[in-house]
Simulated assay, not measured.
Amino acid sequence: MASRRLQRISGEGARFLVVGALATLVSLVLFNVLVHGAGMGVGAMNSWPLPAFILANLVGMVVSYRGSRSWAFRHRTEVGPTGGRVGFLVVNLVSLVIPLTCLTISRYALGLDGALADNVAANVVGLGLGTVFRFWASRRYVFRRRPRRSRAGAAV
């Protein structure tokens, strides 16, 4: 029983990470173009890295929801009338606080404003911590397990 559960969680975790990697790539490219330019050194939102990070991650959330709903957690029950979209948005907005905090500390407390510092703070440290939270919260609140059926067919 425990090995089936571990197998199920590891399968979901692997699919979740693949979807997250794609969504992160979208967010990462968009953030860097907005803040650091497309190879030009300074982007249009260079002075506003936090709003740029939020914007880039909102686009990444759309990619992440589609991949999570249709692949990573396709076998799990949809939650609520919106199919889990509202819960997914809430979980992702709450988890966005983690990399934003890391980016804020790096930029404004430590005075680091280069592309490497921004990306390490937000997209390595913050993303790593946020991913663990999102996986747990997505399984717990957004994409729930289908109820088991007893022999009589009633949900247990």
Results as ranks from 00 to 15, higher is better:
Arg66Asn: 12
Pro51Thr: 02
His36Ser: 08
Met61Phe: 11
Ser106Tyr: 04
Trp71Cys: 08
Leu116Asp: 00
Ala154Met: 08
Gly60Leu: 12
Gly130Thr: 06
Pro51Trp: 01
Arg148Ala: 11
Arg149Asp: 06
Leu6Asp: 09
Ala38Asp: 09
Pro147Ala: 09
Gly80Lys: 02
Val33Leu: 11
Phe16Gln: 08
Asn123Lys: 01
Trp71Asp: 10
Arg149Ser: 08
Pro81Arg: 14
Leu129Val: 04
Arg148Val: 11
Arg85His: 07
Val59Asp: 01
Val132Cys: 05
Val86Met: 02
Ala117His: 03
Val97Trp: 08
Arg5Met: 13
Ser68Leu: 04
Ala152Trp: 08
Arg140Cys: 10
Phe73Gly: 11
Thr101Gly: 13
Val42Asn: 10
Ser3Ala: 12
Leu116Asn: 00
Arg76Asn: 14
Gly126Glu: 12
Gly37Pro: 02
Val97His: 09
Pro147Lys: 10
Asn92Phe: 06
Arg69Gly: 08
Ile54Val: 15
Leu22Ala: 13
Ala72Leu: 03
Val125Ser: 02
Phe31Ala: 07
Phe31Val: 05
Tyr65Phe: 07
Val26Ile: 09
Met40Ile: 09
Glu78Ser: 14
Ala137Val: 05
Arg76Ile: 12
Thr82Gln: 07
Arg139Thr: 12
Leu28Ile: 00
Met45Gln: 06
Gly130Glu: 03
Val26Gln: 07
Ala115Ser: 12
Ile105Gln: 08
Phe16Gly: 06
Thr24Cys: 04
Tyr108Thr: 15
Ala56Asp: 03
Arg149Phe: 01
Val124Asn: 07
Ser95Leu: 05
Asn57Trp: 06
Ala155Lys: 13
Met1Lys: 02
Val62Tyr: 14
Ala115Thr: 00
Met61Cys: 13
Leu103Cys: 14
Arg69Asp: 15
Val90Leu: 11
Leu93Val: 10
Ala2Trp: 06
Leu55Ala: 11
Ser68Tyr: 07
Gly114Ser: 07
Phe133Lys: 03
Leu103Ile: 10
Gly20Glu: 02
Phe143Asp: 01
Ala44Asn: 10
Ser68Met: 12
Arg146Trp: 09
Leu17Lys: 01
Phe31Thr: 07
Gly83Asp: 00
Leu129His: 05
Gly84Cys: 06
Asn92Leu: 06
Gly114Tyr: 00
Phe53Cys: 15
Val156Lys: 14
Ala38Thr: 06
Ser3Lys: 14
Leu100Arg: 06
Leu112Val: 11
Gly43His: 01
Ile9Gly: 08
Ser150Cys: 02
Ser95Tyr: 04
Val90Ser: 10
Leu89Gln: 03
His36Thr: 01
Arg139Glu: 08
Trp48Pro: 14
Ala109Glu: 09
Asn123Asp: 04
Val29Thr: 01
Ser68Pro: 07
Gly111Trp: 06
Asn57Tyr: 09
Arg146Asp: 11
Asn57Glu: 13
Val35Gln: 08
Trp48Met: 15
Gln7Tyr: 10
Thr131Ala: 13
Leu127Met: 13
Ser27Tyr: 04
Arg76His: 11
Asn92Tyr: 04
Gly37Val: 02
Ala2Ser: 05
Ile105Lys: 05
Gly20Phe: 03
Gly111Lys: 12
Ser10Met: 14
Gly111Leu: 12
Val63Cys: 05
Arg151Phe: 14
Ser27Lys: 01
Ser10Gln: 06
Ile98Thr: 02
Leu25Lys: 00
Ala152Asp: 15
Ser10Gly: 09
Asn57Val: 10
Ile98Cys: 00
Gly37Leu: 03
Leu30Lys: 04
Phe88Trp: 01
Leu58Asp: 13
Arg140Trp: 01
